[in-house]
Amino acid sequence: MFVLTVDQRKSRKREDLVEAAMDALNHDALRPLVLPFDRTAGDEMQAVAAEPAVVVSIAMELAVSSHWSVGIGIGSVKRPLPDNTRAGAGEAFERARSAVTSAKNASGNIAVSGASPQAGQAEALLQLLVLVARRRSELSEEAGILSDQGLTQQQIARQLGISQQAVSSRLQSGLWQESRRVLSVAESLLEGADR
Rank of each mutant, 00 (worst) to 15 (best):
R97V: 00
R95M: 08
R79T: 12
E91Q: 12
S65Y: 07
E94L: 10
T85W: 05
G90T: 08
L81H: 13
E94D: 14
S66Q: 14
P82N: 09
L81S: 11
T101Q: 14
G71P: 08
N84R: 15
V100W: 02
D83S: 15
R79M: 15
H67E: 14
G71W: 00
G71Q: 01
R86F: 08
E91P: 08
V77P: 08
G71K: 01
E94W: 09
V70M: 02
P80C: 08
E94V: 05
I74N: 11
A99G: 11
S66W: 03
V70L: 03
E91T: 14
A92I: 01
G73I: 02
A87W: 07
G73L: 03
V70Q: 04
N84V: 14
T85C: 12
P82Y: 07
W68A: 06
R97I: 00
L81D: 13
V70I: 05
A92C: 10
G75W: 03
D83C: 06
R97F: 00
T85Y: 10
S69W: 06
V77R: 09
S98N: 09
V77I: 15
H67D: 13
A92D: 01
G75S: 11
L81K: 06
V64F: 04
R86Q: 06
L81A: 13
A99C: 03
V100R: 04
G88F: 04
A89T: 07
A89G: 15
G71V: 01
G90K: 12
R95C: 05
E91A: 15
I72G: 11
N84S: 15
